[in-house]
């Protein structure tokens, strides 16, 4: 284990828990930072994940719609970050598998995600992700996709 990196992860988690600032945690994962993801805190304290729209996230330019891989990659990042924020994992958890159902076309607009840890065992965790778009016009927020992911949790070497 790289002690400096793991200390940085602990510090990033502590910053989120004390001030609600998760920017250090996002910076800890280069691909999350490259996507442009950021995290806010809901009224109940739960993390809410945001991906601001930009042109390079488009898949279908005529509709236009976000690339399916963007929605999936965002959901995978959200699940991983969620687990790091709400649990005390000392390192980035390994992924076993990932599954996503696309319920609606994602417009060329910001994405949001909310996660829940549905199962937390000794070795495996399962995280559900709801990906949402809110066009601001209607009260109803549209669920774009539902995803789930299995992680292997850290266990010390025997």
């Amino acid at each position: 284990m790289n002690a400096a990196l793991n200390a940085a992860l602990d510090d990033a988690r502590a910053a989120w828990r004390s001030t609600g600032d998760a920017s250090a945690l996002v910076a800890h994962i280069p691909y999350a930072a490259w996507l442009g993801l950021h995290i806010t805190r809901a009224a109940d304290g739960a993390p809410v994940f945001h991906l601001p729209f930009r042109d390079t996230l488009i898949g279908n330019y005529k509709l236009p719609a976000l690339h399916g891989g963007v929605t999936a990659g965002f959901a995978e990042n959200a699940a991983t970050l969620h687990l790091l924020l709400v649990q005390d994992e000392p390192r980035i958890p390994k992924t076993v598998d990932f599954s996503i159902d696309y319920l609606r076309s994602a417009h060329a607009a910001d994405l949001q995600a909310e996660c829940t840890v549905e199962r937390l065992g000794h070795r495996v965790a399962q995280v559900q992700v709801r990906v949402i778009q809110d066009d601001g016009k209607e009260a109803a927020r549209r669920t774009i996709a539902l995803a789930r992911m299995h992680f292997i949790l850290y266990s010390p070497e025997p």
Binding site: N6, I29, P30, Y31, G69, V70, E76
Partner: peptide, 24 residues
């Protein structure tokens, strides 16, 4: 590319970018 890394400690690429490749 370095920006596709998901785990700096072990120099592993992020699964999310692999999913983007697969979807494409």
């Amino acid at each position: 590319r370095p920006e596709f890394i998901g785990d700096t400690e072990h120099a592993l690429l992020h699964n999310g970018v692999i999913t983007s490749l697969i979807d494409s």
